[in-house]
């Protein structure tokens, strides 16, 4: 318990990942699902940074994590624009509520 190693960080990351996946699965609201995605990406980032600290992956892990943060922001921006557009057309952001497409 005294020393915190790589395993502990990976465990936290796994927890974040699983919470994100479950969140994506059970929420219907578009923005709720996006929050799940953010959790998943954060789990991955925590993995990368922990590996960067403890293994030979080194700085590359941090570089990748930085890119992920930037890409996630871009993705969130597009997703939000699409959600707003969807709302303008449907007056809801429930993914299931859309009725035009029988999917």
């Amino acid at each position: 318990m005294d020393t915190v190693g790589l395993n502990s960080y990976l465990l936290v990351a796994a927890m974040l990942f699983v919470c994100g996946v479950v969140c994506m699965a059970v929420k219907r609201n578009g923005i709720g699902i996006l929050m799940g995605v953010e959790l998943v990406l954060n789990g991955a980032n925590l993995n990368l940074v922990a590996f960067a600290r403890y293994t030979v992956l080194g700085l590359d892990g941090q570089v990748m994590a930085l890119f992920v943060i930037v890409l996630a922001a871009a993705e969130a921006a597009i997703a939000l624009a699409i959600a707003l557009n969807f709302y303008n057309n449907h007056l809801t952001i429930d993914v299931d509520r859309g009725s035009e497409l029988q999917g």
Partner: peptide, 9 residues
């Protein structure tokens, strides 16, 4: 981190 993630769900 874990508790809040759980709370999000």
């Amino acid at each position: 981190a874990c508790g809040s993630a759980l709370a999000v769900v």
